[in-house]
Design a protein around this nucleic acid. Structure first.
Lengths: 178, 178
DNA sequence: GAACCATTCTTTACGAGTAAAACACTTGCT
DNA sequence: AGCAAGTGTTTTACTCGTAAAGAATGGTTC
């Protein structure tokens, strides 16, 4: 173990490290390595989600709502509810509810398919597109500030490792379900 | 397959990379770097949470319930509801509900404080401790399997970078709230 | 063309989390 | 002592998500 923090290189302990230390002292035989990744990912996600919503709230949007609008914006074309569900990783029912609210607020419009009357096509209204385009830069700036504690070199490494992990998880997880 | 470091040709693409590419083509001027970290953390957390619960479900526990029992186990002493809330990063109300269920199931016991009759002290029953001690190794083995797509060297790097990020977030986020 | 199955989306029932109010108790001030 | 303010916990009202059932439509097979 290195010396205490206080110097410019000294790193402050995170809570997961403390938790892992506790487990080690109770069960010294246990391999707690996965906690240091999974526990931290969960904890980071929780903290980021709390903090992250700040600029979105100014726009009156929740993160899942913004994700839905963003999917319509970034694909650049209309999407059906099931495509939106896939795109935003949420259930069809959740999409239905969000679409109801967002259409009432005039941010998205629906159009029925002429051939297959089961499907609906959703697109952003002008107001919706303006809201996304106005909010996204603020959101990204905020996120940049939130991450600024990590120097750019490390941010890049982290992004790269997370990308590797994620692509593994996305490839495997369906198969691993036991 | 091929060398994975840096080359976009070698590694399977994750979904976040595709999303980022879409944004880039719509708003080429935008700095989408934070998405590659925050988006991936969120997505990893979602996937892990889904998959992760498998061994816990066998024990009839949700992840938050297990976290609560684990907090009692790893600290090794009694905790009050508010300490449990802090320890598991959830609201007091949620802890109250979980404690109700877990005491009904005979996994935790409550004891009133003799001096201050507002506070309760919670501890694991023998059954509770046995459940935690029996489940945790399975859980960790499963998590190890889930992470096994990443080689140990990279797992260590990832854990370390996440630790840095998390300690920054935990230190700063309270102050950043605007 | 009618019965059957698959699909797309919506509705319903419910579980779980939170914020804020309520409650129970303690502490400090006068 | 008596009352105000503070603290720890629970309750209440509400939001939001999902799974499962339901409704509407399309396709297929005989």
């Amino acid at each position: 173990m290195t010396a205490t923090n206080g110097g410019p290189t000294g790193t402050r302990q995170d809570t997961v490290a403390a938790v892992v230390r506790q487990w080690q002292s109770v069960h010294p035989d246990l391999d707690t390595a996965p906690m240091e990744i999974i526990g931290r990912i969960n904890r980071c996600a929780a903290l980021l989600q709390q903090a992250e919503d700040a600029p979105l709230r100014r726009a009156g949007l929740s993160r899942p709502e913004f994700d839905l609008l963003g999917a319509l914006r970034r694909t650049g074309h209309e999407l059906t509810p099931s495509e939106l569900a896939r795109e935003t990783f949420s259930s069809g029912a959740a999409v239905t509810k969000r679409l109801k609210l967002l259409t009432e607020r005039g941010l998205v419009e629906r159009r029925g398919d002429s051939r297959d009357r089961r499907v609906a096509h959703l697109r952003l209204t002008d107001a919706g597109r303006e809201l996304v385009d106005g909010t996204l830069p603020e959101q990204l700036a905020y996120e940049t500030a939130v991450l600024s504690g990590l120097d750019p070199r490390r941010q890049h490494e982290l992004a790269s490792l997370l990308g590797e992990l994620l692509s593994q998880l996305e490839g495997r997880l369906g198969a691993l379900r036991a």
